[in-house]
Nucleic acid binder design. Structure first.
Length: 262
DNA sequence: ATGGCTTTCTACGAAAGA
């Protein structure tokens, strides 16, 4: 049995005590982090060493940045999403652990989206990034390697994934092209692990810092695990741990976890 | 809400986030 967590921590340095306390209590075998907001060589390695984790880090100054923590050895690390050599944003890191491939994903936000006739530069980047992710998934499927892609997708898949969907109708997280691109990933044969286990509305992974969103449970479900067919066959459970969002100095995201059978 | 927080930076306000 393997427990894998994904958590957009909104700065690994500002959140180090929250993160280490949660890891020490929850003890996931693998943790995928996003928005570490630090360059690779400044990543705080020592507290994770102490907890028994191996590390793979793809950092960037100030923004973005992703990391994989794993109690088992990490092999064959791939830094960055293929398909655009000019893309310098640190949003994708993939490796082999325990015989499967695992990626930590920080999909672009995309706001402001621009108009329907002319998407903004940021929204175009998001949609192109999703196309590159689809291409990567097609390669992994063709190679017949089991895989799990976890992270902050910045996609609200359906109206039941937001407390107030009207607030998101014209947002890059929910616009039709965004949901269409997310569905096209699923249509390749991937499974949204959370929805395979839990069909309830009102299951969120993000609450804005503003306007008492957490206290009012005004959230959205945007952090996801997508599993290849072979990994879906091994899926035992998937759940959201709301507790870290209520702690002092919390990230605006909370962790999502999957349990995979051996 | 064209932003009510939060984080970052050769900082002292602006950019980015969602």
């Amino acid at each position: 049995m393997t427990i894998i967590a994904s958590w957009n921590v909104n700065s690994v340095r500002a959140r180090i005590d929250n993160i280490t306390a949660w890891l020490d209590e929850t003890k996931p075998d693998i943790a995928l982090l996003q928005e570490i907001k630090v360059q690779t060589d400044s990543f705080p390695q020592e507290p994770f060493d102490t907890l028994g984790y191996n590390l793979a880090v793809l950092g960037q100054k100030s923004y973005n940045g992703v990391a994989i923590l794993s109690k088992a050895p990490i092999h064959d690390v791939m830094e960055g999403l293929p398909g655009d050599d000019s893309d310098e944003q640190a949003r994708y890191l993939e490796a082999e652990i325990n015989g499967f491939r695992v990626a930590t994903i920080y999909l672009p936000n995309g706001n402001p989206p621009g108009s329907a006739d002319e998407h903004s530069e940021k929204y175009s980047y998001k949609l192109n990034w999703m196309k590159r992710l689809r291409d990567r998934v097609e390669t992994l499927l063709a190679d017949d390697v089991p895989f799990i892609l976890g992270g902050d997708y910045n996609v609200i898949p359906a109206e039941e994934d937001a407390a107030d969907i009207k607030a998101w109708l014209n947002d890059a997280l929910y616009l039709p092209p965004t949901r269409q691109a997310f569905r096209s990933l699923l249509n390749l044969g991937l499974t949204d692990a959370f929805r395979a286990i839990n069909q309830a509305a009102g299951q969120y992974t993000f609450w804005d810092y503003q306007a008492g969103a957490w206290q009012r449970d005004n959230g959205i479900r945007i952090d996801h695990f997508l599993l290849s067919p072979a990994m879906t066959d091994r899926l035992q459970n998937c759940w959201i741990d709301r507790k870290p969002r209520g702690e002092p100095k919390a990230s605006d995201h909370t962790p999502i976890l999957v349990e995979i059978a051996d």
